[in-house]
Nucleic acid binder design. Structure first.
Length: 351
DNA sequence: ATCCCGACTG
DNA sequence: CAGTCGGGAT
């Protein structure tokens, strides 16, 4: 077999990976379905947080067919607490596309894989290399960090040019004889060794790292854009009548689409149908682009009173509501107010 | 308080 | 191409 020479960088990180890699369930398989599932979970999510979700999802939906046929609500319930819920909705759309357009066989090339919803350049390269040994370099946040430092690249990673610059470089470094291990190695290296605030003293690249030699490690990678945070107010009324709760699914575009919630008043809470009991407010809830101030009240509606149901809302039993996916903000509200009997009944079994 | 992480949408 | 989409670690 013809062997092209290995770049010193590639040799070093692959040797490092052989020593330091974590044992992770999706690294013990070549099953593209399991690898795809793990990669979607790991988008914008750290391994420690994603791991239990992977275990629950793969055992609930062992095959792409199981996932395609699952009710969306049960998928979102399993995804609860992981954030970026469009990932779960796209995951199922993609599973249905595999069944319909690929006859149930997971697509086997980068060009086909990237057609799946929720799969972009990074994820397609990851699946194509890990499952099918296609020599496509992955470029994720770890790769930006590692390459910008080792090669002292000052390209702004928020710029439109960045992806091309880093993809070309990574593609020039990937060894044809083992692209999968190279891709795993460079990301694991970014996750464990070349971290945002790294300890360079025991780094295997410390003698060749360009950023370290010029004292630019802390400044790289360069990133210009910062997201502005909008402050919003959410007032929840936990409305109970006959042991049922007034709830709705968030169907409009925006945050938490597909998740469920109590009666929500976005602005000031001046609707006072009956005597209300203040609940303990959850702490200010921070998203990347939202700062949510939340207040909540409990309202018991007399059994024989005919309440006018607001548009989009309906009555639901606590146990059915428990089985729906809810934002972490509401899970916090529930667990902070377990002295309220009906909230005990929807206390989540896990986050 | 600040930073981390991909893909889609309009 | 700028804005949107969550949650957690440090």
């Amino acid at each position: 077999m013809q062997k092209s020479p290995l770049h010193p960088f590639s040799a070093t990180i692959m040797a490092w990976y052989a020593e330091h890699q974590r044992e992770l369930p999706w690294r013990q398989t070549k099953d593209p379905y399991a690898i795809w599932l793990s990669e979607i979970i790991l988008q914008q999510t750290r391994v420690a947080q994603g791991l239990p979700y992977f275990e629950r999802l793969i055992s609930s939906f062992p095959t792409v067919s199981d996932l395609a046929e699952a009710p969306e609500a049960s998928l979102l319930r399993l995804w609860q607490g992981l954030g970026y819920y469009s990932r779960a909705r796209n995951l199922q759309k993609a599973a249905q596309m595999v069944m319909r357009d690929f006859a149930g066989v997971f697509p086997q090339s980068y060009d086909e894989i990237i057609r799946l919803p929720g799969v972009g350049p990074y994820t397609a390269a990851a699946i194509a290399s890990f499952a099918f040994d296609e020599a496509k370099a992955v470029v994720d946040g770890n790769v930006y960090r590692v390459l910008s430092r080792v090669f002292a690249i000052e390209t702004d990673i928020a710029s439109s040019a960045a992806r091309g610059v880093f993809t070309s470089l990574a593609q020039s470094l990937i060894p044809m004889q083992d692209p999968a291990t190279f891709n795993q190695a460079i990301m694991e290296f970014g996750a464990l060794q070349c971290t945002p605030a790294p300890d360079c003293s025991d780094c295997p690249l410390r003698v060749s790292c360009a950023a370290l030699s010029v004292g630019r490690v802390a400044e790289l990678p360069l990133k210009s854009k910062k997201t502005k945070v909008k402050e919003i107010e959410m007032n929840y009324l936990v409305i109970e009548q006959n042991g049922q709760l007034l709830v709705r699914e968030r169907t409009e575009k925006g945050i938490w689409k597909g998740l469920w919630e109590f009666y929500l008043i976005e602005d000031s809470c001046d609707w006072l149908p009956f005597q209300r009991q203040a609940l303990k407010s959850p702490p200010v809830h921070l998203l990347s682009h939202r700062k949510i101030h939340c207040d909540a009240w409990y309202v018991q509606v007399p059994d024989n009173f005919e309440l006018e149901i607001p548009e989009g809302y309906g009555w639901m039993s606590p146990s059915d509501f428990e089985s729906k996916g809810k934002p972490v903000l509401l899970l916090n509200l529930i667990t902070d107010n377990l002295d309220c009997p009906i909230l005990q009944d929807i206390s989540p079994t896990y986050l």
